[in-house]
């Protein structure tokens, strides 16, 4: 009994703790999420397109921006196949990247201030929040030449570069 009282007395200070701290840090960070993996539709024998009107699915990327003005998004639509059957003719690539949904209406500035060159579009991530980017891609083979049957894979590059 004495031992039990002694043990209780020793443990008592720990039981008297009034609060516990939860510590968290919010640090500058950019996260890239694949929201939707794109799929090519094949509306013509010579054409692959991610547009819904062509039976495709647009790739959609989500960028989470914790601190405004720390990063820029650099997004590139495909300009070659990463994997395809043997192709003997020229493939003509076109595409575009636009701002889709945004968590803050002022993020429309991303679209206004974007810079385009080659297949790349750069967006200054000047506002914290979440932004979705839609990437359209189209590949036309030769002059209305039928694409050979097989597997076609193309790569969308999504970069977040600290500035």
């Amino acid at each position: 009994m004495k031992k039990l009282i002694l043990a209780t007395a020793l443990l008592a200070p720990f039981a008297l703790a009034e609060h516990a701290e939860i510590i968290g840090n919010v640090e500058s960070k950019c996260s890239i999420t694949t929201d939707t993996q794109g799929v090519y539709g094949n509306p013509l024998a010579s054409k692959l397109s991610t547009l819904a009107a062509d039976g495709g699915v647009l790739p959609i990327l989500r960028y989470d921006i914790i601190t405004a003005g720390s990063y820029k998004a650099v997004i590139g639509y495909p300009n070659e196949f990463a994997s395809s059957p043997a192709l003997n003719d020229i493939v003509t690539w076109t595409g575009s990247t636009i701002v889709g949904e945004v968590s803050d209406a002022s993020m429309s500035a991303f679209e206004t201030n974007k810079v385009e060159y080659n297949n790349i579009t750069e967006f200054p991530l000047s506002i914290a929040g979440t932004a979705w980017f839609n990437v359209a891609s189209e590949a036309n083979y030769g002059y209305l030449t039928a694409l050979p049957a097989g597997q076609y894979v193309a790569t969308v590059t999504a970069e977040c570069v600290a500035i």
Binding site: T34, T155, V156
Partner: peptide
Amino acid sequence: TQVTVILSKIC
């Protein structure tokens, strides 16, 4: 078949 893959890069 006929997909796009996303290459993500953070710097």
